[in-house]
Simulated scan of single mutants.
Amino acid sequence: MNTGIHLDAWGGLPTHPFPVLDEETDEADRAAAMRELPAADEVAWRITVSCDEPEETWTEAFDRFLETVDPGRVRALVIGCWPEAYDSGPDEIFAAIVAAKARFTSLRAVFVGDIHSEECEISWINQGRVSTLLEAFPALEEFGVRGGQNLDFSAVRHENLRRLVVQAGGLPAEAVRGVAGCELPALVDLELWLGTSDYGGDSDLDDLAPILAGDRLPRLTRLALRNSEIQDAICTAVASAPVVARLDELDLSMGVLTDDGIVALLGGQPLDHLKSLDLRHNYVSAEIGARLTATLAGVSVDLDAADAYSYEDGDNVWRYVSVAE
């Protein structure tokens, strides 16, 4: 996963940036960009400002957006960078969006923190109480968030959410417990980037237990527990997790996965009902990898390890998740 670029789509729509006020864009170019805006319901609108010394605040840009684009037709909203995202969270942004919620009658998808690494590293992004937006918009079907610092994901019940993505270089245990405690009867796709303890990722298997049990996720068909330094332990838990029998897609990619994790999967419940098993970015030997693919001959198994990096220091072997800082 490349966090050095912005989302190219969200909510089933291509992203489109709402024109930014900055010193590098002259008035004529800005006016041309405003004239050439797509229809309100054709794109996922990305509203952003510069992270450092912007010409306007995010909420000022949002006010311009509301004056320009019909919010009643907007289907997807992407929150980009806000001023000094490495020091402050988006609570004012949430308040502005909630204040305008009556106008967003068609809103079905929101992503918070579409900030690439040159703007602010993923583990520096300050978040807030993101479940505020879930509570304010009961018709949402897709919700995503990037950044784990100060992330508050309180447990909520949401009847219509179908996809939930939380990306972090280190996802706090409290946030994992919040997600695990949510009642999400319509959810079909859950993706968590658990990260590393070096950047606040301190969750363990107990925190994930409600997700692996699946009692609150009756319609789940894709589960992604990615980017984890405890990937082998997760594989051991997944090997007997009740939720797995219902899945079409299982994603355990981007983490520190070794032969031990694969052996645990091979010794657990059958996985041949899966359509796909994503294990990219791993530290798995060719021999064990071949055993897995032979056992799951009818499953699309991705064991590409091209971007996995490790080094040896004496008797120690250091391995890394795909996305940390």
Rank of each mutant, 00 (worst) to 15 (best):
N2A: 03
H6G: 02
T15V: 15
T15Y: 12
H16D: 14
P19Y: 13
E23N: 15
E24Q: 08
T25Q: 07
A28P: 07
A33Q: 15
L37Y: 07
P38E: 06
A39M: 12
V43K: 07
I47R: 03
E53Y: 12
E55G: 14
T57F: 12
F62H: 09
D63Y: 03
R64V: 10
V78G: 00
I79K: 03
G80Y: 01
C81H: 02
A85Q: 14
G89L: 08
E92D: 09
I93P: 00
I93Y: 05
A99Y: 12
K101G: 10
K101L: 15
R103M: 15
F104Y: 10
R108I: 15
V112G: 03
D114T: 12
I115Q: 01
S117V: 12
E118S: 13
E119Q: 14
C120A: 06
E121N: 14
I122H: 05
I122K: 00
W124T: 09
L133E: 10
P138Y: 11
P138M: 05
A139F: 04
L140M: 03
L140H: 11
L140N: 04
E142Q: 09
G147I: 09
F153M: 06
V156D: 00
R157N: 10
H158C: 01
E159D: 14
L161Y: 05
R162D: 09
R162H: 13
R163A: 03
V165E: 08
V165C: 06
Q167I: 15
G169N: 01
G178R: 02
V179E: 10
A186I: 12
D189R: 00
D189A: 06
E191P: 00
L192I: 07
W193G: 04
L194C: 05
G195A: 12
S197Q: 10
D202G: 01
D202S: 01
L205D: 07
L208T: 01
P210C: 02
P210T: 04
L212P: 02
G214E: 02
R216T: 01
R222S: 10
L223A: 06
A224K: 08
L225A: 06
C235T: 03
V238R: 02
A239K: 09
A239S: 13
P242R: 05
A245Y: 03
A245R: 07
L252I: 11
G255D: 07
G255M: 06
G255H: 02
D260W: 05
G261C: 03
I262A: 02
I262H: 08
A264M: 06
L265W: 06
P270L: 06
D272A: 07
S276C: 04
S276Q: 12
L279G: 05
S285M: 08
A286M: 02
A286H: 00
E287H: 09
G289V: 13
R291S: 14
L296I: 07
A297Q: 00
G298F: 09
S300Y: 08
S300V: 14
D307T: 14
A308D: 05
E312N: 14
E312G: 11
N316W: 13
W318S: 08
Y320V: 15
V321D: 10
V321N: 06
V323T: 05
A324Y: 08
